[in-house]
Design a protein around this nucleic acid. Structure first.
Lengths: 210, 210
DNA sequence: CCGTTAATACGACAACTGTTGCATTAAGAT
DNA sequence: ATCTTAATGCAACAGTTGTCGTATTAACGG
C-alpha cells in the first residue's frame, strides 16, 4: 500500500490545484482590500470565480481559508540579511517588519488581525511565527561567533525583545509608524544582549559550543 | 470631577442606565465564555434580557458594544504599585499583565482580539492603552527621582520595551505563559534604561524636571 | 479510447442577521 | 396627577450565511 503519500489529497490534479491557487489569491486580495472583516466565504468564492459550495466543502470556513494561506506563506526561502553586526542585523530585520506592517494595504497586518477569528488560523499562524523566529536564530549565532555576544545567549528571547516593540506599537497600540523605532529597538536589544541580559545556563550535556 | 454633563444622553434615567449595565455585563460574559467569535448581538441581547432591537439601536453593532466596554474600563482608579525600585515596579506591572492575559477565561485577551473586528472598537481601545501607559509614567519619574535613571529618559519607550515581550508572547505568538518572563523582561528593560538606552533630548523650554 | 469516481457546479432550503413601522412603557417636566 | 416623548418592546420583513441532495465535469487508471 501507499508507502508515504501525504494523507491529504486523493486527486491533486490540474483543476484541484488551479482552484486552490485561485481561491488563495482571492483570500489575499480580499484581505488586503477590505481587511479581515470583508473576508466572507461568499466574496472569496465570487472573486475566485468558483461556486460557494466548493469553498465551503474544501475549506469549511474562514479559519480554514486563513490556515491554508499561512501554510502557503511558509513556502519561500526567506532568510535574515547579514550586515556584519548584531545591531545591524536586528535593525534590518525590524525594517522589514515595519515595512510589511505599514504597507498600504498590508496583507501581513490583515493576516495577524484575522488570525484572531479562528483557532485553526491561530494554530497555522503559530507555526509560521515559529518558522520565522527559527530562521532568525542564525543572527544570534553569527554574533556569538564574532564575539559580540556571550555563548549560551538565549536567541529566542533576544529576538523577541528586539522585535516585540515594533509589533506592539503597530499592531496592538496602532500608533503611527516611528521611523526611528526599528533602529532604536535593535540598538536597545543589542545593548542588553552584550551586557549578558539573555544569558542562559548551558543545556546539560552541551559543555562547549560546537 | 465631571463639571460638564456629557453631551450624550437626553434621558439617562433609571431604566436606560440599568439596561446599559445589563448589556455591558452580558458583553463581558459572552466574551469570556465564547470569545470574540461568540459575541453576537443576538446572544448579548438574550443574556441581558433585552430585546434585539434595543441593542441594535443603541449600539449599532458589535464594534459599538466593544467601544462602550472599553469606555467603561477606564472608569477605575488603577495605578502601578510602588515597590521601591524600577525593576521591581516593572516586574510588578508585568505580573499584573501576565495574570490578566492568562486568566481563564481572560476578558482582557478577548477584548484585545475583538478590537480587531471594528474600527470603532480599535479607537476606543487605543484611548484605553494611552490612559494606562500615561498612568504608568510615574514609575519612570520615580526612578529618575531616585537617581536610578538619567533625567530626560523617554518613559513611553521604556515602558513599551518592558511590557511588549509579554504581549508578544501571549497575544501574538500565543505561546504558553513563561513564569520567568515578567521578571526577565523587567530586568532587561531596567538594565538598558540605566545604561541610557532611552535617553531623549530635553524638550525645548523644559530645562529642569518639575 | 473508455470507465470510474473525486471534485466541482447547481439549485433549493433552513437558520441567522439586521432593518423598519408601530405599539407600549416609563423618565422628566408641568 | 397628568402630559409629553424618549426609550424600549414587538412583529414582520429582506438579505445573508451555511447546508444538503443531485447533476455535471474532469482527473486518473485501464
Amino acid at each position: 500500500m501507499t508507502p508515504s503519500v501525504p494523507p491529504a489529497r486523493r486527486r491533486p490534479g490540474g483543476r484541484t490545484s488551479r482552484i486552490r491557487a485561485q481561491v488563495l489569491d482571492a483570500v489575499r486580495a480580499e484581505l488586503a482590500e477590505h481587511g479581515y472583516d470583508g473576508l466572507t466565504m461568499d466574496a472569496v468564492a465570487a472573486r475566485a470565480g468558483v461556486h460557494r459550495t466548493t469553498v465551503y466543502r474544501r475549506w469549511r470556513d474562514v479559519g480554514g481559508l486563513l490556515a491554508d494561506v499561512f501554510e502557503a506563506a511558509s513556502d519561500d526561502d526567506w532568510q535574515p540579511r547579514d550586515t556584519g553586526s548584531l545591531q545591524g542585523d536586528l535593525a534590518a530585520l525590524n525594517d522589514e517588519i515595519q515595512a510589511a506592517l505599514t504597507a498600504q494595504p498590508s496583507v501581513t497586518a490583515a493576516l495577524i488581525a484575522a488570525s484572531f477569528r479562528s483557532e485553526e488560523a491561530a494554530r497555522a499562524q503559530r507555526r509560521l511565527w515559529e518558522d520565522r523566529y527559527a530562521r532568525c536564530e542564525i543572527v544570534v549565532s553569527r554574533a556569538i561567533r564574532r564575539g559580540e555576544l556571550p555563548p549560551h545567549t538565549d536567541a529566542r528571547r533576544l529576538l523577541i525583545a528586539a522585535t516585540a516593540p515594533l509589533y506592539h506599537q503597530l499592531v496592538l497600540l496602532r500608533t503611527p509608524p516611528d521611523p526611528h523605532l526599528p533602529d532604536h529597538a535593535a540598538k536597545t536589544a543589542a545593548l542588553a544582549a552584550s551586557a549578558g541580559a539573555f544569558a542562559k545556563p548551558p543545556s546539560s550535556g552541551d559543555t562547549s559550543g560546537a
